[in-house]
Design a protein around this nucleic acid. Sequence first.
DNA 1: GAAACCGCTATACTTTAGGAAACCACTATA
DNA 2: TATAGTGGTTTCCTAAAGTATAGCGGTTTC
Lengths: 130, 130
Amino acid sequence: METYEYDKRKCPTHASGEQCAKLLFPVKDALDVLSGKWKLQIILSLSFGKKRFKQIQREIPGLTPKVLSKELKDLEMNELVERHVYDTLPVSIEYELTNYGTTIKPLLGELHKWGSKHRKRIIARNGRKN
Amino acid sequence: METYEYDKRKCPTHASGEQCAKLLFPVKDALDVLSGKWKLQIILSLSFGKKRFKQIQREIPGLTPKVLSKELKDLEMNELVERHVYDTLPVSIEYELTNYGTTIKPLLGELHKWGSKHRKRIIARNGRKN
DNA sequence: GAAACCGCTATACTTTAGGAAACCACTATA
DNA sequence: TATAGTGGTTTCCTAAAGTATAGCGGTTTC
């Protein structure tokens, strides 16, 4: 008969626990700023150059003006995006990644890479959808 | 998974628009699976080796059993995590990253890197917190 | 002069994510 | 016998996210 002893041997208390905790904090911080359905998509869109409100909205399907407006404000607050107001008539407005914002590109690159592989995997599994 | 239709008519001026749309698709797919407050943290925790339920819960502060239970199911469904049941008394259970799950590590690495820089930035800005 | 662009905001509603607490059957430890 | 640990589930609840639709003050295009 096997007891907890057995399984403690198989699952010793992990030396990694503390180390893991340390890595966890920065990941959490990043997630605080970037998580959600839209922010990374918006940043990706802006990584091609500055864009106007409607332009972003058109490029990201399903994104409503209310949500876009809010997300842009969040990104501005975190200094990832800048809002430029040009003195035309009527005023035209553009959103642009800050220098800091561009530091997310490598992360976005990885996300894209993984997403591509994942997509293929799903399509293969489902026997083609769209 | 949905089809992304990029409307050329509506965005004629922007050459990058179409290219952007193509990149957006995989990013969306990745986000579908990974977004949320906990999944990447759980994957990070498991990237140090297989762990038991309570062990994961202890390592990730604020994570309640209900949420952990749900997230693990989601991750299992997406074949990122495997659940092993060992025939002990009482049964002991371990969660482990699948091979596929480990393909997220590079992404996690970038997230951690960016998160670290971001953390420093915030602390500098706020004049030291915690 | 109508329609359609621009950059949003307002209102109202539904859905989902996540949190708090209790609880279950079981085993081990003191 | 009491307490704590195991791997969760159940219930109830709130806050945030998202959806839908309309509107405003302006301009440019047909």
